[in-house]
Every structure is written in structure tokens, then in C-alpha cells.
Amino acid sequence: MSAPPADRNAEGNFLGAALRHPAFIAGLVLTLLFVGAALLSYLWTPYDPTRLDIAAKLQTPTSGHWFGTDHFGRDIFSMLMVGARVSIAVAIIAVGIGVSLGVPLGLYAAAHRGSLLDEVVMRGNDLIFAFPSLLLAILITAVFGPGAVNAIIAIGIFNIPVFARLSRGAALSLWTREFVLAARVAGKGRARISVEHILPNLMNLLIVQGTIQFSLAVLAEAALAYVGLGAQPPLPSWGRMLADAQTFISLAPHLALFPGLAIVLTVLGLNLLGDGLRDLHDPRLRRART
């Protein structure tokens, strides 16, 4: 019965349009590549990424070790595969926290516009936005100790206002639309309208923003791990691999090269995917492109 004005035609054309969007395809391929590597690492890696072989340290890439070995003789390729798992898991959960707390807050604030809670939510958002994010993340991990879980919390907190603000803003404009007014006339409560009518129409927006936040979270996780506040050894992490590589930069540059490329390609893939999704969901832009 709910009749969101979703563009049914667009759904049908989505696949065709997607296939004609090279950036979207590139983003999808890169993202799938890293997600695939992360999943595969549960079943198989060329070597045990935690096994040390001091005698074989700092080897340049060979057919035995595709990306060479690190300062403990560990296989860099295997470490990157497992590192992908950490990066992706941290990013997914952190963004998940942002969505699951931010969206309800935003929807509530929009439904009760001008109420005290709306004011509190928005000022709370301002407060979090005003904090230097990396510094606060470092403080949080100083309080709770370093580790993947605390990195997730630190990154997640900064995702809450992003989604709260986004969904409040978008929901506010939806509240003035006819189909919502019709639902109100039909006697539906604010909460029910928010869930049944507003939320479905925010989905596209949330998916696009989610992808972008996801890529930002991968970068943030790398930065935290780089300063030593991410997942703890022996679990490999891209950011910590870079930190470890730093003193070897003149001796063995490949130690810094591959983890850096992994981060760049993952973030690039997610950004391209996000941009592609936005283009595909925005008919105006799609027209402009063709």
C-alpha cells in the first residue's frame, strides 16, 4: 500500500546502465577483488602470515614470495590477504554503527522537528563534528587500549553524526511530500511513517553515502593502525605493515610499496563504486552523461 515514488523503470534499466558505466565496473571489480581476497584468506593463503623465517627476511619479490618477505621473513602477499580481512571488517562494523545509530536519530529528529530531542541530537552532532577526529580517536584508544574493537568504536562514533545529519536532512524534505501527507491523513503515527514511507526512500542515498563512508573508514583504520592503535600483532594490518616498513624504506622499499598500494586500490575501488551508484541512481546525471 505504501507507494513510494520509486522509479520502476530505472530499476529495470539499472543493469544495462551499470554495464555502460566504466568507472562503476572498475570500482566493482576492485572491491570484489579485495573482498574476495579477504574471504579466501580464511581458506587459503600462500604461506602462514604469522610464521617467521628470520633467515629469509627482506627478500624482494620472487616466484616463491610474490610480493617478497618482510623484516621477519613473513610472506607479504599472505599478510596483505589477511590484512584485507581486518580492514574490511573494521570498516563494515564502524559504518554499521554509524548507520544503526545515526539513521534512527536522524529520522526521529526529522519526525519531531523542533522538539527538544531534535535540538539535542543536532547539537550533539555539532559537538562530535567540532572535535578533531583523529585526536579523539587516539584519545579513545588511549583510554580503552589499542585493538581492532576500539578502532571500530573510535571510527564508528564519527560515523553517527554523518548518517544522522544526512537522514534528517533528506527526511525533512520527504515529510513535505504528498505521499507522506496522505499517510498522515490516513492516521498513521510519525514513527510508522518514518519506517514505512521515509526510510525506504532514503535507501539509495544511504547506500551511496555508506560506500563513501566505508572507504573513509578503510583510510581511518589504516591511519590508526599506522600510529599503532589498530589490530594488534600477530594479526596483520595494512597500516601497521606501513609503520613497520618505515625504517626499511631505503633498504627494502617493497615493504612499504605493497601495503600502500593495497590501501589505495581498495579506497579507489570503493569511491568509484560509490560514485557509480550515485550516478546510476540519479536520473538527471545519467541523462547528462549519455
Binding site: T50, R51, L52, F72, G145, G147, Q232, P233, P234
Partner: peptide
């Protein structure tokens, strides 16, 4: 990190912080 790997060889898990 090296000690954690060596302890693993004899069946002891060292959780690094």
C-alpha cells in the same frame, strides 16, 4: 612478535598488546 611466534611452536598462545 618473534617470541609470540616461538611460543606458538610449543603450543602457547601469546596475546600481544
Amino acid at each position: 612478535e618473534i617470541i609470540a611466534a616461538q611460543l606458538k611452536e610449543v603450543g602457547i598462545t601469546a596475546e600481544i598488546t
